[in-house]
Amino acid sequence: MAKVHQNFTITQKCELSAGYCLLHLKPASGKLPEGILPGQFVEILAPDNATMLRRPISIHFVDYNTDRISLLIRRVGNGTNAICDLPEGEALDIVLPLGNGFSEDFEAGATVILVGGGVGVAPLLYQASKLKDKGIRVKMVYGARTVDELVVAEAFKPYCELEITTDDASAGTPGRVTDSVCFREYLKEAAMVQCCGPGPMMKAVAAACKAHGVACEVSLENMMACGLGACLCCVEKTVKGNVCVCTEGPVFNIEKLTW
């Protein structure tokens, strides 16, 4: 699928708790590029030169019926603040779709466990919907530090069996995602675990999967400049040496990593 560079208008913006912001965007051309994969990302130019480099953001959801994409963004600095401060009706300068996606081909009736931590749940919503369409049983573990950060939990419910974990026990199962009932009871029967979240969380999930012989994909968010495989800044060390997360990833099977 071809990468494109175009403006997207913010059709709807929802400020959520804990500094999260949900943007719904429509391409100025009217048409989304075809074949966007769950797990891919966009590069957004921050308005008003708030930052020089673009900000890589996961694609949260794609709706080809209305030609809209959604982005779930957490405000962490000048770039994400400038993007989230833009009002509805304004346009963002975006390059997309970038990178690879999560695996989608499983036998009908198989179980796939999705694990998201904090803003790492962003790329998993579109994946959950795609898997459900294919007749895959999806179990989702949504981890957060505290209940305020569970900003899009409701959105997952139509597509999966959802379990929540919070570090401070303010909602769901107390503890980390690896303490979840899902992990304790169902890990062994999963065809694959697909995970996105903070580095230590993904490493703990990868270790649990390895211990039980379960396949696992993780989505990395190494700092990057171009997003196109040109600058070689976002590299991850793999069994085949340093590779660009923006082109060979962001999704990697843990067998390819040196974790």
Binding site: M52, L53, N222, A225, C233, E236, N242
Partner: peptide
């Protein structure tokens, strides 16, 4: 050449 370890970039 493998290049230098990550992180390799800062804005």
């Amino acid at each position: 050449r493998e290049g230098n370890p990550y992180p390799r970039m800062a804005e």
